[in-house]
Design a protein around this nucleic acid. Sequence first.
DNA 1: TTTACTGCAAACTGTTTGCAGTAAA
DNA 2: TTTACTGCAAACAGTTTGCAGTAAA
Lengths: 142, 142
Amino acid sequence: MTIQNQELKKVGLKVTLPRVKILQMFENDDVAHISAEEVYKQLQEAGEDVGLATVYRVLTQFEAAGLITKHNFDGNHAIYELASDDHHDHMVDVQSGEVIEFVDPVIESRQHEIAKEHGYEIVDHSLVLYVQPLNAKKEPKV
Amino acid sequence: MTIQNQELKKVGLKVTLPRVKILQMFENDDVAHISAEEVYKQLQEAGEDVGLATVYRVLTQFEAAGLITKHNFDGNHAIYELASDDHHDHMVDVQSGEVIEFVDPVIESRQHEIAKEHGYEIVDHSLVLYVQPLNAKKEPKV
DNA sequence: TTTACTGCAAACTGTTTGCAGTAAA
DNA sequence: TTTACTGCAAACAGTTTGCAGTAAA
């Protein structure tokens, strides 16, 4: 039995082709950050006959099960990535669309201090740096 | 001539009722962070006959003119606020929906350092803390 | 009086849902 | 053989756009 099968069973989902294929896709490093539409497209290209609605359903289930994480880097489409134990933030290269992960303990701890100073505790947070390669000609903010 | 009229002229927009009303709304402190739908609703309640499409158009124009700023706190609807010279980040109370602004020089400078370490420069960034009042019963992340 | 602006309704994009059929357990 | 899952198409929410009329300059 494959790893994906085990993971699916563990979270109480039937082992079906769409789910296995999609999970495999996320576990493949070079597609770390991907949208529903992209998942769908890749399945098509791989010759798998999976509907877009199913992709959305599976992604939603995976997120609920804690297998993947959903991000809203822009207001248009959501981006998913394999959930990992280690928290990290994101940098988006506005020219290439590439997504880079990073962690910074200083920022992390400041966030908690700031919340506490205001009488709150952090439930979740989102930090995204929109960047461009150094020495690139400067454009006004997106 | 009112302040709003001057501001509109300055950015090359005709002084029309929808624009003046909407600009006034943003300059009224207690509606600092507001969605298109909310702007529309408030206009309705004030008896102003302004279409939703116009609200969206005006908000888009105001953003292009640098009068207001657009945020995507969640993936659903955009939130706008009056543009200000001083940069700040946001804290969203997940229970009340209230939006709190804050600035932290430590976080700001770390962000630039991190980008530089990766060979990038920051074009824009977004930091949102999703928080709940201290001592509230804990719910899993949203 | 010219040209930008507006309201309306229709279009669009990303996402969700109802349903009847299909496949995992 | 039961029940979850799927594909399809239709529905949905937020936002945008074409058009004929209206108002600012």
